[in-house]
Design a protein around this nucleic acid. Structure first.
Length: 698
DNA sequence: TCCCCTCGAGTTCA
DNA sequence: CTCGAGGGGA
């Protein structure tokens, strides 16, 4: 049995004794943390606790190689991280659908009942809980130890904040016996309002910038590069969901919550089990009434189907579960004067009206601009320059103009006339019939569009060149330093010969210039899908770019196919439109891009500067369906069509929408229609769902 | 032909 | 985050 023996001098410990004592200390400190922070039942004095922490630190200093991965000292004073590494979630972290009215909640309940085929009398329970305004986080425990913590990020990939999360006292470093071998606990990192105010007070005293609200404060505190700083912030955590688990937690959401509590997590309270839409509405009203009494900020409540079995049956739509919904409180609003309406020109030439507002605080943030979306929106709300308007932040983020206070409209104000010429290049701006946006026809001659295209090219999801932001791109373009993507890659070379090198520019130095050149060099090799996306072809976003990369595999093959597809009656065109999700409209935009000589020249030039890497399907080599074209038809039993498609693509297959002689497999579900017949007529291999699953090894 | 869903393109502020 | 439009299943 390992012992904590403070009486033995650290210097005289053997390595074996030290290791045993470190293990005992880790356990003891974790236990006292739990007692103190979660159960408010400390068993030792603060001084006694400090002695344990100091003893641990002393032993670690003497035997650094024995430092444990779960060392209590990593909670405080861990070395600063150099930025945050990306971390892929084992199970994606989803977002929630929103309801803003009782009616929408009623529809949600009805939708769930319909989906599950429930009759009038069949019971259906929901868990209702407050929706904390914090920052979602996923905590991964293995063999009971906290091993990883990640922010939500885009849902698929977040940031590794393990070191910072270890400093949050309320989060158990270790789970009690009986917890699953693998458990990802999901919840919200947040700050109590009182703690937030106190912290701001002290920051103000120290002359430091204060945070706008508890949410920003929690986010800012968790994303500190130095965990020591995070450790000084009063962060807390509520657990309310889970990701990967090696064993089911419970049979219902309600009981799963109790399990989380047993593991030492604080739960978001007050929660309630509700049996009907009426009870949900009552809960909503009650929480809404008590909102200001709660010790933390909430932006609504969440309803979840209680039965985990029913949750499984309901499944997901896109990135949100069908079995849960957030019922939001109405957003905080503010009145301000709309000074002017300006027009911005986007990469595709779209003219977007933006409201320039007299700065006003909404939801703790000063807002001075808000999008007006488009021409129709302005007409619909009859928004005029000089009006007093009501502003709110949609989803508490993006500012929007809700309405005009007509009573305060100044005399002699005029309806806003949307320009029919581009404010940047003067070209005609036209609105295609049936479309809402008005677009500048300047195309290649419009400097605003050119800059936006360049900005898109270097943006995060495209070439991601660090140090080449919006401002710098615009300045480079204006001065003629960089006008095309390829010129970015010739920048360093040209700079050496230049009479006015970068380092001589205002705001630039030797070091910043070198850093930029290095960042550019790092991007000379680029995966095909990113390359296609970076080109900024209309309607070709990330998803479609990846689809094209998967279908054509190499830059050469893609370019050749696009050239050939100019013949709308040819095979190449049929292949293109036969890619699932690519129809005639998308095909036309692609072909329009390739029929423009300027674009071909830019592409050619760029291809000389960089290496475009062939598309690499995941697990491609091993799978018998890699490189094959598959068509799904009819209703699949074991998974949704979207899931089947994702599975097939993950194995390197291409999923097509219709059957042709080039199709390798047609997977036939229940009630299949003409596609099955066509497959037979063409002699294409058909598979039942079971055969398909066997083929891909499920 | 009509929905439903997904995707793209636009947006703000710290 | 929101809106509009394209794609495709029903």
């Amino acid at each position: 049995m390992p012992e904590i023996s403070p009486e033995i001098a650290v210097a005289s410990l053997t390595p074996e004794q030290a290791a045993a004592e470190l293990a005992a200390l880790a356990e003891a400190i974790a236990r006292h943390d739990r007692l103190y922070h979660q159960q408010d039942r400390p068993e030792i004095s603060d001084a006694g606790y400090d002695a344990l922490v100091r003893r641990n630190a002393a032993i670690e200093a003497r035997f650094p190689e024995l430092r444990r991965p779960d060392s209590p000292s990593s909670r405080v004073g861990a070395a600063p991280a150099a930025g945050f590494a990306k971390l892929r979630h084992a199970v994606p972290m989803l977002s929630l659908g929103n309801a803003f009215s009782e009616m929408e909640v009623g529809e949600f309940v009805a939708r769930v009942r319909r989906f599950l085929n429930l009759g009038e009398g069949d019971p259906l329970d929901f868990v209702a809980e407050p929706k904390i305004d914090g920052l979602s986080c996923s905590l991964r425990y293995q063999a009971g130890w906290l091993v990883l913590a990640a922010t939500r990020g885009d849902g698929a990939e977040g940031e590794d904040v393990t070191a910072n999360v270890r400093t949050i006292a309320e989060i158990p470093q270790r789970l009690p016996a009986g917890a699953p071998e693998v458990l990802e606990v999901r919840g919200e990192v947040y700050m109590l309002r009182d703690d937030f105010l106190e912290m701001n007070r002290r920051r103000a005293e120290a002359g430091e910038a204060v945070y706008a609200n508890p949410r920003n404060s929690a986010a800012g505190s968790l994303r500190q590069l130095d965990p020591k700083v995070t450790a000084t912030r009063p962060l807390r955590f509520f657990g309310y969901a889970w990701g990967e688990v090696s064993a089911p937690l419970a049979t219902t959401q309600w009981l799963a919550r109790q399990r989380l509590a047993e593991f030492g997590f604080r739960l978001n309270e007050p929660a309630r089990l509700c049996a009907s839409a009426d009870q949900l509405a009552a809960y909503y009203a009650e929480i809404g009434g008590r909102r200001s009494d709660l010790r933390f900020d909430i932006d609504g409540v969440v309803y979840k189907v209680d039965s985990l079995e029913l949750q499984r049956r309901l499944g997901f739509v896109s990135r949100a579960p069908r079995w849960a919904i957030a019922h939001k409180f109405s957003a905080e609003q503010a009145r301000t004067r709309l000074e002017r309406i300006t027009i911005q020109v986007g990469r595709t030439g779209a003219l977007t009206p933006v409201a320039e507002l007299a700065p006003v605080t909404v939801g703790g943030v000063v807002v001075s601009r808000a999008t007006l979306h488009n021409e129709d929106e302005i007409q619909r709300k009859d928004i005029r320059e000089g009006d007093t308007v009501v502003v709110q932040r949609a989803g508490d983020v993006i500012p929007q103009v809700v309405e005009v206070i007509l009573g305060e409209r100044p005399d002699g104000s005029l309806r806003f006339v949307f320009p029919d010429h581009c404010p940047e290049c003067g070209s005609l701006a036209v609105r295609e019939p049936g479309e809402v946006v008005r677009r500048c026809t300047g195309g290649l001659i419009c400097p605003a569009q050119a800059k936006e295209r360049l900005r898109h090219f270097v943006s995060r999801d495209a070439f991601d060149i660090e140090g080449l932001g919006e401002k710098i791109i615009a300045a480079f373009w204006d001065d003629g330093v960089v006008r095309t993507p390829a010129e970015i890659f010739r920048l360093a070379e040209r700079d050496r010969a230049s009479l006015t090198p970068l380092r001589a520019r205002e705001g630039w130095g030797e070091k910043s210039a070198r850093n930029l050149f290095e960042a550019i060099e790092k991007r000379r090799a680029m995966p095909l899908e990113r390359f296609i996306y970076a080109l900024g072809i209309r309607q070709i976003g990330q998803a479609t770019a990846k689809l094209l990369a998967r279908s054509y595999l190499t830059l050469a093959a893609w370019r050749a196919a696009m050239a050939e597809a100019a013949d709308r009656d040819g095979q190449a065109y049929r292949d293109l439109t036969n890619i699932d999700q690519i129809g005639p409209a998308v095909a036309e935009d692609l072909l329009a891009f390739f029929s423009e000589p300027h674009n071909l020249a830019v592409l050619e030039d760029l291809a000389r500067e960089i290496e475009v890497q062939d598309f690499v399907p995941l697990q491609a080599q091993a799978s018998p369906v890699a490189g094959k074209t598959v068509v799904f038809t009819g209703t699949l039993e074991t998974m949704s069509r979207g899931e089947a498609k994702a599975r097939a693509e993950a194995l390197g297959a291409k999923v097509a929408g219709s059957v042709s002689a080039r199709t390798d497999f047609v997977v036939i579900g229940a009630d299949a229609g003409s596609k099955a017949a066509k497959a037979q007529a063409l002699g294409v291999t058909t598979l039942t769902e079971a055969q398909w699953l066997q083929l891909i090894g499920v």
